[in-house]
Design a binder for these strands. Structure first.
Length: 280
DNA sequence: CCAAGGCCTGAATG
DNA sequence: ACATTCAGGCCTT
């Protein structure tokens, strides 16, 4: 019997937030930084480190969150249809690299690139009789050459990736600080990293820095706003400019409230399924 | 402040 | 087959 506290693992993994996951028979296996997670059919979670993980955000009061974001028919429908969809709390470094790679790309390709990066630079480990590669540490990527990084299929993003890793090592970017920063401050800092603009910063903040009060405005979310929310949020320019992004974002946070990140995830999932887009 | 064009790559499209 | 387009953007002009 399904209830509000049951996580729908398949839908949550296949919602554009994580990429290094694979299903083997009935179990899901995923890389999260230096950890590997296994989820079986009964939603039992095991990790290679046996350290308690907050990956599944079980402390979120999901009932309260759902109530809070359920402002209209559209979002209510999405919430109902994708009942167990949850946001994960990822390793920030892996999340940051993932979304730098995501720009101007698509899910299968992002996954492919991240797998190559893990294989090339990450530590090989055996877990549950399967071979995995952990996500590489920042140091490893920072001292690699641009061409080595390029060989993972990331193209022009290679120098961004290297610089991002260097900024983490030098503490110009400190994830623990960013977690304590508010939305605006964290975003300002993240955007110092090359390859991280509005959209990428928003993803990193929602998926790894506990910023539930963000709403990512990628092409899909814009499409959704135009389709279902044209009265509430008018988009004035052809492409969403810096200024427009800010104005729109503020309006949306006003509308959906402090947990609007969840609203984004439900709407995104719904619309992508409508278009039958590919997942992992 | 806004619009336009280039950028790696590979899957999809014609 | 082979060329062209396009995809969860970013950055520079």
């Amino acid at each position: 019997m399904k209830n509000k506290f049951t996580i729908d693992i398949d839908n949550s993994i296949n919602s554009g937030q994580v990429f290094l996951w694979q299903k083997n028979k009935n179990n899901w296996y995923g890389i999260d930084g230096q950890n590997i997670l296994e989820i079986n059919q009964e939603n039992k979670i095991k990790s290679i480190s046996n350290v308690k993980t907050s990956f599944f955000r079980k402390n979120d009061d999901i009932e309260k969150i759902i109530k809070s974001i359920s402002k209209d028919k559209i979002i209510k429908k999405a919430v109902r249809k994708y009942d167990g969809l949850r946001i994960f709390n990822q390793d920030p470094f892996q999340c940051m690299i993932s979304f730098i790679i995501s720009s101007n790309s698509n899910i299968p390709k992002i996954k492919n690139s991240l797998e190559k990066i893990s294989e090339k630079f990450g530590k090989k480990v055996i877990f549950k009789e399967h071979e995995f590669f952990l996500f590489p540490q920042p140091e490893k990527i920072a001292k690699s050459s641009i061409n080595e990084i390029k060989s993972c299929g990331v193209g022009y993003r290679a120098p961004f990736i290297k610089e991002a890793a260097k900024m983490v090592i030098s503490k110009k970017i400190d994830f623990e600080n960013l977690k304590n920063n508010d939305y605006k401050e964290a975003k300002k800092n993240l955007r110092l990293i090359p390859g991280i603009g509005n959209k990428v910063a928003d993803c990193i903040m929602l998926f790894s820095l506990n910023k539930l009060d963000e709403f990512t405005l990628d092409t899909w979310m814009i499409k959704i706003l135009e389709k279902y929310y044209s009265k509430e949020f008018q988009i004035e320019t052809k492409t969403v400019t810096e200024k427009q992004y800010q104005i729109l974002h503020e309006k949306i946070v006003d509308y959906f409230g402090p947990y609007c990140g969840y609203a984004q995830q439900f709407l995104f999932k719904m619309e992508r399924e409508n278009y039958e887009k590919k997942w992992l």
